[in-house]
């Protein structure tokens, strides 16, 4: 096992951040922690990267104990925190040299690993980190986290606030790093990124709701979701919520995803109801379940 977490809990003075969490990440796996702001993802990252002590529980990283072997762990992991934490006053080159020196290596030694990412920021290598765009900062931070060829990479919300094009490129980069044998633990609030992980843990309010592969999470989901569309989306959501047997109704791209309480639900009845509510251009069909659908349902059941 690359990462092993057993019954970890952590509280801050007024909040329970992580509550009795257990999971494992296999060697070479791309494992995603999927959950919103405040779910406890960052706390978990900080515990596993040995910068925060858990109140209870046990965790090992690369076979090493997070408390006893913390110094050894630090040599073996790369950590990219959610908040940009490089030196703003140092240039790209200076930041890279700084982190290389700390880990007793050089930029040249593991150049292979970072080459692909580094060449994208190389034209700006003499620019101070503070003056870089969001996307470039993200790439520099990833280079710094990789400079000592870590066995395990911890990426805490690397794509938050990043546009869809850059997000896509970033994930392609992660896939290539994984192929080079690096285990990756990554967190994200974007549900579409969950589908790109080998396995994911859905996390909310400090608790893990589910751990499995994205495919299994979707295929084991046993409710039928209907995608409904009419001319007026806002009114449609309001009216679906008034439908007597409704379970949930959520906007979903150009449709509204609707779940009924009744297993013998008849879409033609719903269509009739929507016509009575003066909707036009009504279209009801079975939708393909996504991770986001499942996550929302778990959230509702968890409240």
């Amino acid at each position: 096992m690359s990462i092993q977490v057993e019954n970890i809990s952590k509280s801050y003075p007024k909040t329970l951040a992580v509550s009795d969490i257990s999971f494992e990440v296999k060697e070479g796996e791309l494992f995603g922690l999927i959950g919103p702001d405040g779910a406890g993802k960052t706390t978990l990252f900080r515990i596993l990267t040995t910068v925060l002590l858990a109140d209870e529980g046990k965790a090992t990283v690369a076979g090493l104990d997070v408390i006893q072997d913390y110094k050894e762990i630090r040599k073996n992991i790369g950590y990219m925190p959610g908040k940009f934490s490089l030196y703003q006053d140092l240039t790209i080159t200076e930041n890279l040299n700084f982190f290389a020196t700390i880990f007793g290596t050089t930029l040249e030694e593991n150049y292979d690993l970072i080459k692909e990412i580094y060449i994208q920021i190389e034209p700006f290598k003499n620019r101070r980190a503070g003056a870089l765009s969001g996307g470039m900062k993200q790439k520099l931070a990833l280079c710094c986290a990789l400079i000592h060829k870590p066995k395990i990479l911890f990426l805490d919300e690397p794509t938050t606030g990043v546009d869809p094009v850059s997000r896509k490129e970033f994930w392609e980069m992660l896939k290539r790093l994984q192929k080079k044998g690096i285990t990756i633990l990554v967190s994200t609030p974007y549900m579409d990124e969950a589908a790109l992980c080998d396995r994911i843990a859905l996390i909310q309010k400090g608790q893990i709701l589910k751990i499995d592969s994205p495919e299994n999470i979707v295929s084991h989901y046993n409710k039928t979701i209907y995608k409904v569309r009419t001319k007026n989306k806002h009114q449609l959501i309001l009216d679906l919520k008034k439908y007597p047997s409704h379970y949930s109704a959520f906007a979903f791209g150009e449709h509204v995803h609707y779940i009924d309480q009744n297993i013998h639900f008849d879409p033609t009845e719903l269509e009739k109801y929507l016509k009575e509510q003066l909707h036009s251009e009504i279209d009801i069909a079975v939708a393909k379940t996504s991770i986001e659908d499942v996550f929302m349902d778990f959230t509702m059941l968890n409240q």
């Binding site: 919103p36 549900m191 959501i237």
Partner: peptide, 13 residues
């Protein structure tokens, strides 16, 4: 940004 999927939808309502 960073808000959970249900709250995001409530916000849009």
């Amino acid at each position: 940004g960073g808000v959970d999927p249900i709250t995001r939808r409530q916000f849009w309502e």
